[in-house]
């Protein structure tokens, strides 16, 4: 009976950890997406200094969670998201007003995808 109880708690524990992971990834991608949007808006206003700061902050937040995301996310997804966010930073540094919108959208899409893959929905299940 001990074995069965242990496995029942293990199953519940795994499910709880999965839900906690979805919530954590949700908060993380949300925070980064807000910074990306902020950077995009500031770039549109011509405030390149503040836009760069917002994009740098997004990069910093993403790298701050490196250990965690490498445990729970596929490395290919991490690499695409990291590339996208650095592309945005590069466009902001070079003050390319015409390209910031596109790269910001791409970065935003990558982080949205990461969350969509993790969250429980009909689409992600099947």
């Amino acid at each position: 009976m001990k074995k069965e109880l242990f496995t029942a708690f293990l199953l519940i524990g795994i499910f709880a950890a999965c839900l906690a992971n979805v919530s954590y990834i949700g908060k993380l991608t949300d925070e980064i997406n807000k910074l990306i949007c902020q950077s995009q808006e500031l770039a549109a206003e011509g405030n390149w200094q503040a836009s760069a700061e917002a994009a740098e902050e997004a990069v910093r937040v993403w790298h701050e969670h490196d250990a965690y995301i490498h445990i729970v996310l596929k490395h290919a997804d991490i690499d695409s998201a990291t590339d996208a966010i650095y592309d945005l930073l590069a466009e902001v540094y070079s003050h390319s007003a015409g390209n910031v919108d596109g790269t910001a959208l791409r970065a935003h899409y990558h982080f949205e995808c990461i969350y969509n893959m993790e969250r429980i929905s009909f689409g992600s299940l099947f």
């Binding site: 445990i71 729970v72 596929k74 490395h75 290919a76």
Partner: peptide, 11 residues
């Protein structure tokens, strides 16, 4: 595949 975290096998 080294790009897949070990947790994807363990879990």
């Amino acid at each position: 595949d080294m790009g897949i975290p070990l947790i994807y096998g363990i879990l």
